[in-house]
Amino acid sequence: MPVEIDIEHVAKLARLQLSEEEREQLAAQLGQILEHAARVGEVAADDVPPTASPIPRANVFREDVIEPSLPVDEALRNSPERDGDRFGVPRIAETGA
């Protein structure tokens, strides 16, 4: 049975502006895909540990040694809106963190 999804809510979390048409299409497609994907629940028993990385490693560090940063112009080269030596953005509403 296809899964029901709150497309509005998910799109909000993902910061994605979607057209009405896109929402309908996604609701149908994601429902179908998740129905198939939900099969993972059939085999994964509780005693099976999860694997996050195919070849687990540990304790990989870099030493605390300074290397040159980018020249400011290089750092800002791709910026859609350069504001002096800063990245310009529209006003920030009180939200987020």
Binding site: H9, A11, V43, V48, T51
Partner: peptide
């Protein structure tokens, strides 16, 4: 992006991402 955001979101993580990682072990 929508699929992944949903799969990680509150209440679904274990059923989807968590289980998928177990299948990965298998």
């Amino acid at each position: 992006i929508m699929l992944g955001t949903y799969a990680l979101s509150a209440g679904y993580y274990e059923a989807y991402y968590g289980q998928a990682q177990k299948v990965r072990t298998l």
